[in-house]
Amino acid sequence: MAGGVVQFVFAVTFVMALGCSIAMLFAPNAVHVALFLVGAQIALAVAFLLEGAQFDAIMQIIVYAGAIMVLFLFVIMLLGVDRREALVEPLRFQRSLAAGLGLLLAAALVYVGYRSVNLVVGGAGSGAIEAINRSPGNTQGIARVLFGTYELPFEATSVLLVVAIVGVMVLARRISGAQAREAARAEQEAAGREEEAA
């Protein structure tokens, strides 16, 4: 690929990712925020491709822009789309303070990133990823690392997912009538005990 093309694609990616992120800040509607987030994630997937991370780019689109954002939109629909955020500031100066501190954080992160370029000592260098992608290929290379060095953490993620499934089922279940009455009675008894103590 010609160098100019790569630079042009990266420039488009940069503007799209950062523009969508900043647009998220100012979109009043939650659905618009979600759509801008999808835009930022797709732009990041292109950035992953430019850096030779093909597997991660596809996973980014399938899992993040696909599955996770569908979940978000589903919950937004469930809770009502037409709610708008109140524009009043509950805390005074909160927004201006947040903007100022955010600019400071951005400056600090960019500076640290700029300095950290020189901190990488050793390693195979930037050409090595392209060599791996040619042979044995990105996905095969990731599989070797994932099922070699990181096999135990990989197994642990399955436990994490089971815990998440059980947790969601407990949190999101709808209480049946009898259970609700039972809970209300227990709450009243607790309130009564509190009054007696007081």
Partner: peptide, 12 residues
Amino acid sequence: FARMHGNLDGQV
């Protein structure tokens, strides 16, 4: 950082 170090650990 995976690209800078030249291995796939970051991508994993």
